[in-house]
Write a protein that binds this DNA or RNA. Structure first.
Lengths: 224, 224
DNA sequence: ACAATACTTCGATTATGATCGAAGTATGAA
DNA sequence: TTCATACTTCGATCATAATCGAAGTATTGT
């Protein structure tokens, strides 16, 4: 008799293309309605509803009803983290969905990975922090140095506040488009928010791509 | 047009119960024959062969032919790591396969998680190392202290040799049975091997359970 | 109140993929 | 050489689950 976690169930939940597309869309970290997710998955709303019911029953989603609208989001960061991991392995194994579309350059450059910045700019930041000795890296282990803490303070990041959460401060997250690490963890999240507050970057509706202004990108590259 | 990694493909590869059972069996870190895997999955050899073909095409396996025998193993540590992560999330979400069989206590106590020790004893070791200040823990970040290095040297672990690999020295791995961390990384691997060398523990054929002798367990508990 | 919108549920359809018996190929032992 | 064993491949079967049209429920706007 087999015992232990049922990875087959989890795998099959993610293994349907429509459901995978919805989960991927929710990696934006935003909550989307059933109708929006149906569009993401290119299925009818009724089909999407059935799928969302399964993902919800499996604990992968959380939902909030707002009047006639039902908003769905990934259940928690653990789910996001697993999906990231799957994306990374899929990319490493060459499981890429077909086409390099017009959006692809934008996604490769900068996008949201659930709650932190990913893409070439994010990788640049990670590498820059490491190269300048602001971030100490031993494999997956990351620690912010005194210089790094000063840099963050200068950016307006309150390390005391974000360091108190259960989430690790710094975590390396493998960037599937660049095949190198970018910064996750509570610092990664805080930085994503901060870039938007500073007006360096903004989120576009309906996509995970993050758009940096010319000035914002210049400041970003100057900083990291 | 959707672009990016195809997590649906990966999910569906893992999402079949027979294939999931085989992957789980391969978490032992050993290479198994097609016939053995067929038994693990409770399917015929021909069915197993078809499944193994798919897993192989998906890059999740590596194989080695030895005379009439074809040995299959997980492709690499990345695959093991993802499967661990899925087990952890499945456990957290309550996706548990049914029964607590006679082997369950043994599996809960000590088992192999791809290449390092897991289970209650492994969690005890992790917690002991942290409590005694041998291991510094900040979230997922782990660092061996000088005291910890001395302890390992005393155990006969050559930290220079194992520290040079690409793999992190210390990595926390969530133990699905105990719901707490155990030690992975190259140190985790080396410790697993060392326990067997010392005669404290041994592997049993056909299972991931690790059997500690009475003396071995006493030594283990005294050490950690 | 009525119409529009956002879902959820039901039921029939059908494509898909797991399954195993049969057959074939490769290797090892007697 | 023959027989046994370890697979791989083929083809037919069939269970399953995704799918959407239809219908129903809930909310919002006019």
């Amino acid at each position: 008799m087999k015992e232990g976690p049922d990875i087959a169930r989890l795998g099959s939940l993610i293994g349907d293309p429509a459901r995978a597309n919805m989960l991927t869309a929710l990696m934006s970290g935003k909550a989307l309605t059933a109708s929006e997710l149906a569009l993401e998955a290119s299925v009818t709303v009724q089909t999407a509803s059935a799928h969302l019911g399964k993902l919800n029953a499996g604990g992968l989603l959380r939902q909030r009803k707002q009047g006639r609208h039902r908003y769905f989001a990934l259940a928690d960061e653990d789910v996001g983290h697993l999906l990231e991991g799957m994306m990374g392995l899929a990319a490493r194994k060459g499981h890429m969905r077909t086409t390099t579309g017009p959006r692809d350059p934008a996604m490769r450059k900068a996008r949201v990975c659930y709650n932190h910045l990913a893409g070439e700019l994010a990788v640049h930041m990670f590498d820059g922090l490491v190269a300048k000795g602001h971030l100490l890296e031993t494999g997956d282990e990351l620690e912010l140095t005194a210089g790094g803490r000063a840099l963050m303070a200068g950016l307006g990041i309150d390390l005391e506040a974000i360091g108190s959460s259960r989430r690790p401060l710094c975590r390396a997250c493998l960037d599937w488009s660049a095949r190198r690490s970018h910064l996750a963890g509570s610092l990664g999240v805080a930085l994503m928010e901060r870039f938007c507050q500073l007006g360096w970057a903004r989120r576009e509706a309906g996509t995970r791509a993050v758009v940096f202004s010319a000035r914002g990108e210049k400041e970003f590259l100057r900083t990291f």
